[in-house]
Each structure stands twice: as structure tokens, then as C-alpha cells.
Design a protein around this nucleic acid. Structure first.
Length: 469
RNA sequence: GGUCCCAUCGUCUAGUGGUUAGGACGCUGGCCUCUCACGCCGGAAACCGGGGUUCAAGCCCCCGUGGGACUACCA
């Protein structure tokens, strides 16, 4: 056994945003690398000139950063490496391991259709394989795949997978435009970058035997492979936009914490006994490819929501306030008093599954004028409750122990004195202070709002009652 | 069609030949309670089917069935 230092890579193609599936692949690579104190390389596979964009590259990098998946090398751009790829293509041609092909896409498509219609396998028929053609305009380069024997993929997750070489195709490795195709570029780059472990989605398993043949043709050592199962939507089809948000950054906008998404993703396919919640350090310590399951997993938004709530509840107060602020800022609230905002966040944290929910639920803390819910006001801002409110407003200035416990005692005593139940005073107060019948504990709200705001809001509510509604 | 992969509650999963098949999300009954949450206690809910192997199979083998991936001058 060798003890070569682990080198992994995440190699997305910049044709869109980083999606949930890609994020999990990146996460598994990252965890495996950190676990083994290796090097995590980021490589952008942009050889498809028509579909690759710079915005996508930027978006992918941003999403990785947001998730906390830092890379040690790169990003490298595959398109900048075409000279290396061309040299390797030429090497294979010189050695007779690859050849020029002048079959046109139209011809190939026709042959493919015909083969399929006749129930034969639609692989390249080898027309140009032994013609000894030279490069010409429109020609491509094909890899000469062995026609007999077997290729075994030793997979760290799925075990050994064997393929008959006759199933393999003489795949194109260099397009007519001179750019390498994926299956070739990925091998050249992984080999040249010294990648020791290729961890990727299992939609690549059928490519792997071809790639192994290319490694061998190139005279390179093959890396170890680990094919992680796909993530499916609720209908068991491959996860896509139809199933809801699939872009990582959409989750940030919806008020998810990166730690929650990461924790959700790691449990999709991987487990460590019965444990559900993992700090990053724990994940790194416990992660192993042997513990990754072999079957595809259905993405479950409800569980992610629950995890997000767990993280909101346990996040350090200061950091939680920091990440909530932008959501309030968006509403144009005055957040200059950071201490006040922090207190509000702490009151709200057990009541929100997302930051957006939290920001919504806490809007009353910042609104200049209370936004009364019509039904709530109709029920509680009435002369019947006005009396209670009146007395609360009158007595608050004299409340010495203006704390959660002190206020609770104050309100309980008041309820008893007035021959009613705390709930009636609390609900009336809640509507007067927040405009709603749902809020954090009324004592907490009063503490956070502060005496002045509380009295002011009660007066406004009383004025509304006085005005007859 | 061919090749390859996969198969435990609705979902994520634990399980590695002998278990009342465990946990989590969701659902649900109750408790707590100033509302809503949080929290706590309880419940319903699964080994795809058929053959083997074995004293014994969710765990091993085979065959079905079902799902998925690939089958591009995309990655």
C-alpha cells in the first residue's frame, strides 16, 4: 500500500449555478480530503465553449465559499489547458492508440438510429479505425479502445464493477474545433494534477472504464474512484427545477444557514450511526467513503427545514443576528441599534424555520407604526380589553424589576387584581404591541421593546379603541 | 434496445446470520403554556417478490420485478 498524500478535485462545468447535487459531491470530496489532510483542487471544466459562462464560474465559486468548502488549489480552467490536451492527443496518435476520423455528425446520427432500430448497440462502427487518415478540416480524433478483455473499476463506494471491453466505444477525444472532449480532458487533467481519488456522481460509472483505458494508453497510474449515488426528486426522477429550488444560492436567499444545508447534504447518502446533527469538525473526523450508501436518495425539503430550525436555535447569538440583519435591511428597517436587533433575534430564534420567517415574525420590532392584523384588532382592541391595557400603561413606569421574570410577576398580579386570567391581558397586550396574536413571550417582547415603546404602543392602541375601531 | 448501478417505515437511514427491526423528518394523541414556537411523553408506519444456502436470513447466492444512470464532436 502506498501512503501518497490524498489529492481530490471538484470539477464542475460552468454552465449554470452550483446545484444541490454538485454541492454534495463537492462536500464529500472536501470532507474526504480534510479527513485525510489532503489537497482539494478546484477545476472548472469549460471545454464546452458554447455553453460555459463566466457568470456561472463566479456563481459556483460564491456558492462553494458560502458553504465553507474552501479549496487549496485552483480554480484551474480546463480550457486554458488545451495545449496539454493536444500534446497528449498527438502522443496517442503517434503511438497508434488514436486515429483521425472523418465521419460526419449526420452520418453518425443516421448509423446510430439505424443500429437502434435494428436492435443493435449504437456504438461507433469503426469506419475510420484502420484507414490511417491524416488530420483534415472537420476531422476528429478517436481513441482506439481495446475490443477484447475486461476492464474492472475498483470503486470505493460500490465495490468492483466489471465491463466487457467490447461494450466500450471508440470515443472522440478531440473535436473538430480542436477542443478535447470531457472523457479525455478529465483523464489528462486528473493524471497531470496528481489526483489520487476521483469522487463524483455515479452518473459517471459508465464513463469510467473508458477513462481507465485512456489512463493506461497514456501510461498513467489510475486514481481510486468513488461514485456517489444521485440525488432524486420526490418522484424519484433526477433532481431538477421541477422539484423546487436546486441552486445552492437560492437557499441562502430563502433564509437557510450554510451549516444546515451542509448538514442536510452530508446525511443524504452518508450516515454515522443514528447521529443527525454534525458540527463541521465532527463530519471531518467521522467521514468515510465506506459509510456512504449505494442507493440514490430523495431530496426531502421538510427535513432540511427542520435542520435549519435546529441550527437557527443553536447558532451563536451574535452570528445569528449578523445573518438576519440583511433580511431586515431589505425591508428598509433602521438597524443602527445593533443591541436592540440582537435582542429581537434572541426572542425570535425558537420560532422560525428560516431567516426569512424570523425576519417576518420580528418585523413589528422595527416598524414605526404597529401594523394591526384586522382580526386580531377586532377581537382584542376593544373597550373590554382597553381597561387592562390602560392600567398596564399606567403602572409600567413604576415597575422596578423590568425583566422577563419581573414582568411576568407584574402581569400575573395584575390579572389576579382585576379578576381575570393572564392570557386575556397577555393577548390584548400582544395585539397592542405587535399587531398580531402570535409573537414571542409577551414579557420578552416588553423587555426588548423597552418601557417607552411599550407605553407608546399601548397609548396608540387605546386611541384606536377610543376612536371606535 | 444494450451496458452498468441500486432496492429496510411516505422520506433520510441504522442493521453486517439469532433484534420486540433502532433513530430522524413528516404525520398523529397528550403534557407544558400568555399566543406561537421550543421542550417532554406516547402512537401509526418498513425488510419488493420467488427460489435456494443454513438449525436460523433484512443481512449470503440466484432469478424475477421495480427504479435509476449511461449509451453526444455535453460535462
Amino acid at each position: 500500500m502506498t501512503y501518497k498524500k490524498v489529492r481530490t478535485r471538484f470539477a464542475p462545468s460552468p454552465t449554470g449555478f452550483l446545484h444541490i447535487g454538485g454541492a454534495r459531491t463537492a462536500l464529500f470530496n472536501w470532507l474526504y480530503t480534510r479527513r485525510h489532510e489532503g489537497t482539494f483542487v478546484l477545476r472548472i471544466e469549460d471545454t464546452d465553449q458554447a455553453r460555459s459562462t463566466e457568470e456561472s464560474t463566479r456563481a459556483i465559486l460564491d456558492a462553494m465559499t458560502w458553504l465553507g468548502l474552501n479549496w487549496d488549489e485552483g480554480p484551474y480552467f480546463q480550457a486554458e489547458r488545451v495545449n496539454i490536451h493536444r500534446v497528449m492527443v498527438q502522443k496517442l496518435i503517434d503511438e497508434g492508440k488514436a486515429y483521425y476520423c472523418i465521419c460526419t455528425p449526420e452520418e453518425l446520427e443516421a448509423k446510430r438510429k439505424k443500429a437502434l432500430a435494428e436492435g443493435r448497440k449504437p456504438k461507433y462502427d469503426g469506419t475510420c479505425r484502420n484507414r490511417g487518415l491524416a488530420r483534415s478540416p472537420g476531422s476528429v480524433v478517436r481513441f482506439r479502445c481495446p475490443e477484447v478483455g475486461m476492464t474492472i473499476v475498483r470503486d470505493l463506494i460500490k465495490g468492483n464493477i466489471s465491463f466487457n471491453n467490447e461494450e466500450l466505444d471508440d470515443l472522440i477525444i478531440e473535436r473538430a474545433d480542436g477542443y478535447p472532449t470531457y472523457n479525455f480532458a478529465v483523464v489528462v487533467d486528473d493524471a497531470q494534477m496528481g489526483i489520487t481519488h476521483v469522487i463524483r456522481g455515479d452518473d459517471h460509472v459508465n464513463n469510467t472504464p473508458k477513462q481507465i483505458r485512456i489512463y493506461e494508453a497514456l501510461g498513467c497510474e489510475t486514481p481510486l474512484f468513488g461514485h456517489v449515488p444521485m440525488i432524486l426528486g420526490s418522484d424519484k426522477a433526477r433532481l431538477s427545477k421541477r422539484h423546487g429550488a436546486t441552486s445552492v444560492m437560492a437557499y441562502q436567499e430563502m433564509g437557510y444557514l450554510p451549516e444546515a444545508l451542509v448538514n442536510y447534504l452530508v446525511r443524504l447518502g452518508w450516515s454515522h450511526g443514528d447521529q443527525e446533527i454534525f458540527a463541521m469538525e465532527e463530519m471531518i473526523r467521522e467521514f468515510s467513503l465506506e459509510a456512504v450508501g449505494k442507493s440514490a436518495a430523495v431530496f426531502n425539503p421538510e427535513k432540511l427545514l427542520w435542520l435549519n430550525q435546529q441550527y437557527i436555535m443553536s447558532y451563536p447569538g451574535e452570528r445569528l443576528a449578523e445573518v438576519v440583519l440583511p433580511f431586515w435591511e431589505k425591508r428598509g428597517f433602521d438597524l443602527s441599534n445593533r443591541g436592540y436587533a440582537a435582542k429581537a433575534v434572541s426572542d425570535l430564534r425558537t420560532r422560525a424555520k428560516t431567516l426569512v420567517e424570523l425576519a417576518d415574525a420580528g418585523a413589528f420590532f422595527f416598524r414605526e407604526e404597529v401594523d394591526y392584523d384586522p382580526e386580531a384588532a377586532a377581537k382584542f382592541l376593544t373597550p373590554e380589553y382597553g381597561g387592562h391595557l390602560q392600567v398596564v400603561a399606567e403602572r409600567i413606569p413604576a415597575v422596578e424589576d423590568y425583566t422577563k421574570d419581573g414582568l411576568e410577576a407584574f402581569l400575573r398580579a395584575l390579572a389576579e387584581e382585576r379578576g381575570t386570567k393572564l392570557k386575556w391581558i397577555a393577548q390584548a397586550l400582544r395585539v397592542a404591541l405587535t399587531g398580531k396574536t402570535v409573537s414571542p413571550g409577551i414579557d420578552e417582547v416588553m423587555v426588548t421593546l423597552g418601557k417607552e415603546r411599550v407605553i407608546e404602543r399601548i397609548r396608540l392602541a387605546l386611541a384606536r379603541i377610543g376612536a371606535g375601531g
